[in-house]
């Protein structure tokens, strides 16, 4: 009885191991495209949950911000994006100084234009103009916010 149990246990182990190996191998084949994209810079694409227009917390947790593009974000188009900035209690942050930066971490290049805040619309909403993403893929869209809660940065991961 004990012997049979041992044999079964060892078989389960072997089967699990084989399955794991096969799954990894198949997974690698399927992801080969993604791996190919990692050339040179070594930057790794964040998890899917890290992508999107927010609301998203700033690096030091001083602000929450969300993006609202005037039109759906598409490559090679000049875009206008509204950003809403609030503190962690949800109060609108007015009179903040916001600068815009970004780029493609996997390609080592920045934004092709110099977007900037052109209007403070009130109630924590700011209009950013001159945004362009010149190709599809993973882009970082970074805001440096200097407001009543101090200076902080927030990075949105966008999939164009």
């Amino acid at each position: 009885m004990r012997d049979t149990q041992r044999i079964e246990k060892s078989m389960i182990r072997r089967t699990v191991l084989t399955l794991a190996t096969l799954t990894v191998a198949i997974g690698m084949t399927a992801c080969s495209h993604a791996i190919m994209m990692l050339h040179g810079t070594g930057a790794k694409r964040p998890a899917a949950s890290e992508f999107g227009l927010g609301p998203r917390s700033s690096a030091q947790g001083r602000y929450m911000a969300k993006l609202e593009p005037a039109k759906p974000l598409r490559p090679r188009q000049m875009q206008t994006v509204r950003v809403t900035v609030r503190d962690v209690e949800g109060r609108a942050i007015d009179e903040a100084q916001i600068s815009v930066d970004g780029g493609m971490p996997q390609h080592g290049h920045g934004l092709p234009t110099r977007p900037r805040v052109t209007q403070n619309l009130g109630d924590g909403v700011y209009e950013i103009e001159g945004v362009r993403f010149n190709m599809g893929g993973w882009w970082e869209f970074k805001l440096a916010i200097a407001g009543s809660r101090g200076a902080d940065t927030i990075t949105f991961n966008l999939d164009l």
Partner: peptide, 14 residues
């Protein structure tokens, strides 16, 4: 190649 040569015209125009 698609780092710069993307989209239907295969250029970013950058």
């Amino acid at each position: 190649c698609t780092q710069c040569h993307s989209g239907p015209l295969l250029t970013s125009n950058e």
